[in-house]
Write a protein that binds this DNA or RNA. Structure first.
Length: 437
RNA sequence: GGAGGCGUGGCUGAGUGGUUGAAGGCACCGGUUUCGAAAACCGGCAUUGGGGAAACUCAAUCGUGAGUUCAAAUCUCACCGCCUCCGCCA
């Protein structure tokens, strides 16, 4: 959520930002509603002030006749307050509805575009592997090696589910283990930051296994409930499943005030993510690229406002470090205004090379939401001079299991259909070098 | 799931209808003292919104929401959370 004061003072910027994001908003209506809100609020507060004042008189005054008279008068004022409060409440509800639909403003360096066609490749890394044979897609290889079974999953749970089996499961936990070691080692983090010329305090990430259920009201505060059809809902319990660990990591500190000296705070959350993929009918139906359920290690950082862009760059640097460690070719993409998330001011994606598809596919995302989520969550920081302001929040993928496994399977495939295990993972996999039949 | 108890400021902890935004303590920030520090002493110290150049002032907030009342931290109801015991369970 943006600050209403900021909106009032910068309505053109807000309007233009929404337009760039291809989101329709009515700033004029919001501001005239806000005018009414302030007027009605003043009216209610003036009456309350009167009641408060007279009530104190009643408590003090000894004359019983006067008391009765004042109480009578205040009964009338009470009725008046009630009526005015109802009007205010109606105004507030409409105001709130519009406020929740105002998106965050894209950063100045965000490319403009209607959809993912407007995304810009910022840089790329790694040599695409050359094969002496036609590289296969992950689902062919996975099926033959009996490490991916979507057919049984389809019967048991429906489409877009899979059984991961055998060495692929071991590899999942190897990846997580490897990444947690990176994220909890300040020396490594310092090296990553220095290597990319980023000046951040390299505080290590606190590993977290967060809840996968979240209250819908909290999801609204995370500004991640814009498309209800994307979420699995459990109305009987007033709960929904998270689509990312971000949702229950970012909301951990709602209503809290940090001390400046305690920031940045970094979390590495491991959880399953659940997505209905309602708008993706017929897209990526083979294999495990687009699943209703997948496991993911996610970073979430709370920082001082002035540091949030550096923090985002740092998270991207960590993502690149992970992919470089795995020797997977990738490109870094500046996501354009029409494709970026509602609460994001700046979104950077990483697309990893998938030889079977002969394409780069999105495996990572880094979202800087500035103070947008923090304002809704009311997560703040007390600066060293005593001033209180909203923190800035960043979230980013470390490893999205399904898609990273695909990248490894396809990039490391051998002529005989086996998969060479990336060297860095072998120590977590009993020294094994290949996944074979 | 059953029974009981409890939610007050950064922490702790008083407060069961009346100028209580809330005593006391701790922590924190100034100052006195000291060569310096500690201790002691003095002072300050919640958040949000409105008005004001400012001093200041008005409103709201004692888990959340509704209600009773001229007046609610205090009474009523619902919800949320925490604790203890029993049951169940990975």
């Amino acid at each position: 959520m943006l600050d209403i004061k900021f909106i009032r003072e910068n309505k053109d910027i807000v309007q233009a930002g929404a337009k760039k994001k291809r989101i329709e908003i009515d700033i004029g209506k919001l501001i005239s509603l806000d005018d009414s809100r302030l007027l009605e609020l003043k009216a209610v507060e003036d009456l309350r002030s009167e009641v408060n004042r007279v009530s104190n008189d009643i408590a003090r005054d000894q004359d019983p006749a006067l008391k009765i008279q004042l109480i009578e008068e205040m009964r009338g004022v009470k009725e008046e307050i009630k009526a005015k409060e109802e009007k205010l409440k109606a105004t507030m509800e409409e105001w709130q509805k519009i406020m929740l639909k105002i998106p965050n403003i894209p950063s100045v360096d965000t490319p403009e575009g209607p959809d993912d066609s407007g995304n810009q490749v910022v840089r790329s890394w790694g040599e695409k592997p050359q094969f002496a044979f036609t590289p296969k897609e992950h689902y062919e290889l996975g099926k033959a090696l009996k490490i991916i079974d979507t057919e049984t999953a389809a019967e048991v749970s429906g489409s877009r589910y899979a059984y991961l089996k055998g060495d692929l499961v071991i590899m999942q936990f190897a990846l997580i283990q490897m990444c947690l070691e990176i994220l909890t080692n300040e020396e490594t983090l310092k090296k990553i930051a220095e290597g990319s010329n980023i000046s951040v305090i390299p505080t290590s990430f606190m590993p977290v296994v967060p809840p996968v259920f979240i209250r819908p009201i909290v999801q609204v505060k995370m500004a991640r409930f814009m498309t209800p059809e994307e979420h699995y809902m459990f109305p009987n319990d007033d709960l929904m499943l998270i689509g990312s660990a971000e949702h229950t990591l970012g909301s951990m500190h709602m209503g809290k005030i940090f001390e400046e000296k305690d920031l940045p705070i970094r979390y590495a959350g491991y959880s399953t993510a659940f997505r209905r993929e309602a708008g993706a009918a017929g897209k990526d139906t083979n294999g495990i690229l687009r699943q209703h359920q997948f496991d993911k290690l996610e970073m979430e950082v709370f920082s001082l406002p002035e540091n949030s862009m550096q923090e985002q760059n740092f998270l991207v640097a960590i993502q690149e470090y992970v992919l470089q460690t795995l020797k997977l070719p990738y490109q870094v993409v500046a996501v354009c205004t029409g494709d970026m998330g509602f609460p994001d001011s700046r979104q950077i994606d990483i697309e990893t090379w998938m030889p079977g598809q002969n394409k780069y596919r999105e495996t990572h995302s880094a979202d800087s939401t500035g103070g947008f989520q923090a304002r809704r969550l009311n997560t703040r920081v007390r600066r060293s001079d005593g001033k209180i302001e909203h923190v800035h929040m960043n979230d980013a993928t470390v490893i999205a299991i399904g898609r990273t496994l695909i990248a490894i399977i396809e990039n490391y495939q051998q002529a005989d259909g086996s998969i060479k295990i990336p060297e860095v993972l072998r120590k977590y996999m009993g020294g094994k070098e290949f996944i074979t039949k």
